[in-house]
Nucleic acid binder design. Structure first.
Length: 109
DNA sequence: CGCGTGACGTATC
DNA sequence: AGATACGCCACGC
C-alpha cells in the first residue's frame, strides 16, 4: 500500500528536529520515496499534522504559497532566512550527525 | 485501459 | 533568471 510510503514520509518529516530543515530530496531518500515530488504531494495532501515548514526545496526556498508562512515558522525556531532563502548548509538536518569535525572550518572559504 | 493534467521537485542548459 | 527534461502518483474523462 502506498499508505505505508506516506506514513514513512511523514515519519521522516516528523523526525526532523526543530531549528533544523531538510529538503524534499532528503526526505524522499530517507523515507524511500521514489521521487522527491511524492514528498511534496504527500505533504500537500496529508502534511497538515507535520512540521511541513521544516521542509524546503533543494535551493533552500520553500513553496511559493507558503513561503512567508514557512519562513515565519522557521524564524520562530531560530532558522533565519535571507529574504527568501535559508542557509541549507547551516540548518540542513543531518540524521544523527553531530559531528562538528568537518564542513566549515572557521576562516576558510 | 490509455491519455492528459496537476502537484509544495531536481538537475541541467 | 528563465526554460527544459525527467520522474512518480492521483484524478478525471
Amino acid at each position: 500500500m502506498n499508505d505505508e510510503l506516506h506514513e514513512r514520509i511523514r515519519a521522516v518529516i516528523a523526525d526532523v528536529p526543530a531549528g533544523t530543515v531538510a529538503t524534499y530530496g532528503d526526505v524522499a531518500a530517507l523515507s524511500g520515496a521514489p521521487s522527491p515530488r511524492m514528498v511534496g504531494r504527500a505533504l500537500a495532501e496529508d502534511g497538515h499534522d507535520l512540521p511541513w515548514h521544516r521542509i524546503l526545496r533543494a535551493n533552500g526556498t520553500p513553496a511559493p504559497h507558503l513561503l512567508h508562512e514557512q519562513l515565519e515558522r522557521l524564524r520562530a525556531e531560530g532558522v533565519l532566512a535571507d529574504g527568501q532563502k535559508v542557509d541549507l548548509r547551516k540548518y540542513r538536518w543531518r540524521p544523527d550527525g553531530d559531528e562538528p569535525s568537518e564542513d566549515e572550518p572557521p576562516g576558510l572559504f
